[in-house]
Simulated assay, not measured.
Amino acid sequence: MSSDRIRIRLRHIVQNGDRIAIYIAPHDAASFRADAMTRDAVERCLERIAEAIVQIGAEAVAALNLTVPFNDVRSLGNRLRHEYARLDPNIIFDTARSDIPPLRDAAQRALEA
């Protein structure tokens, strides 16, 4: 993948990470579970982030120091697309709150390098 395409994917990670932060800011786990529209928006952003990471590729992800478990991210993307009815909103919320901000920041640092 060309460096321009990698940069585009990194921007997608940053943009969707920023959206997730805005969407979940007013929520705790209980209010997130109760808000279907926010859950849908966050799940879609997570799906985009997962796809961006897969498109970047495992080797480039490692070279960029994105420190993400590549196979877990790919698995999350597959679950978001194919097993959406079985998703646990608590796990989605925890992922959005705990895992996405450091990934977003790492993608931003990679863009600035």
Score class of each variant (00 low, 15 high):
residue 94 D to G: 14
residue 17 G to Q: 07
residue 87 L to G: 05
residue 51 E to S: 07
residue 14 V to K: 02
residue 77 G to A: 02
residue 1 M to Q: 10
residue 41 A to P: 03
residue 92 I to G: 04
residue 37 M to N: 11
residue 88 D to G: 02
residue 60 A to M: 08
residue 6 I to M: 05
residue 101 P to K: 08
residue 80 L to Y: 10
residue 33 R to C: 07
residue 33 R to P: 02
residue 68 V to C: 13
residue 73 V to H: 04
residue 41 A to R: 10
residue 58 A to Y: 03
residue 21 A to Y: 00
residue 40 D to S: 09
residue 35 D to F: 11
residue 48 R to W: 10
residue 30 A to H: 15
residue 91 I to C: 06
residue 82 H to C: 00
residue 71 N to R: 15
residue 64 L to F: 03
residue 85 A to T: 13
residue 113 A to C: 10
residue 53 I to R: 04
residue 81 R to M: 01
residue 110 A to L: 07
residue 107 A to P: 01
residue 28 D to W: 11
residue 67 T to I: 13
residue 60 A to Q: 09
residue 93 F to K: 05
residue 3 S to H: 07
residue 100 I to T: 10
residue 55 Q to A: 11
residue 75 S to Q: 12
residue 43 E to M: 06
residue 80 L to K: 04
residue 109 R to I: 13
residue 45 C to M: 12
residue 93 F to G: 02
residue 39 R to M: 09
residue 98 S to R: 15
residue 73 V to R: 03
residue 13 I to E: 06
residue 93 F to I: 07
residue 46 L to P: 04
residue 2 S to N: 10
residue 96 A to W: 02
residue 65 N to C: 11
residue 23 Y to P: 00
residue 88 D to Y: 11
residue 75 S to M: 05
residue 107 A to E: 01
residue 64 L to R: 04
residue 101 P to S: 07
residue 102 P to R: 14
residue 98 S to I: 14
residue 7 R to Y: 02
residue 96 A to V: 06
residue 16 N to P: 07
residue 40 D to G: 06
residue 28 D to R: 13
residue 65 N to G: 13
residue 64 L to E: 05
residue 104 R to T: 13
residue 94 D to T: 15
residue 24 I to G: 00
